[in-house]
């Protein structure tokens, strides 16, 4: 939503998630650098481990991801209302 609201579209074939997080940060570095870096860390972990090993995602990490995603959704909602009220 942030990327689209900023007037961009991420090409989905090859590196779609990576490019999305780059574009997210570029849309508002001050606000989105932290979640973009965090989600990219999760992406790397998924690439590194989920196809090779089971059980490497901890309960702490799952709880944190659920919390961060909820907070991110609220953050995006506020950002759209503030920066692109016509889309809210």
């Amino acid at each position: 939503m942030v990327v689209r609201a900023s007037g961009h579209r991420v090409r989905t074939h090859g590196g779609g998630h990576y490019n999305t997080f780059l574009a997210l940060e570029a849309a508002d570095p001050k606000l989105f650098a932290r979640p973009a870096a965090y989600f990219n860390t999760c992406r790397e972990k998924r690439n590194e481990f989920s196809y090779e090993l089971a059980g490497v995602v901890s309960e702490l990490e799952v709880q944190e991801l659920l919390r961060e995603v909820s907070e991110f959704a609220l953050l995006v909602g506020r950002w759209i209302q503030e920066r692109h009220p016509e889309l809210a």
């Binding site: 972990k45 590194e48 490497v56 995602v57 901890s58 309960e59 702490l60 990490e61």
Partner: peptide
């Protein structure tokens, strides 16, 4: 290099 972090609480670990 890539850095892959795995985090646990002390209780869970």
């Amino acid at each position: 290099r890539e850095v892959n972090i795995t985090a646990y609480s002390t209780e869970e670990f």
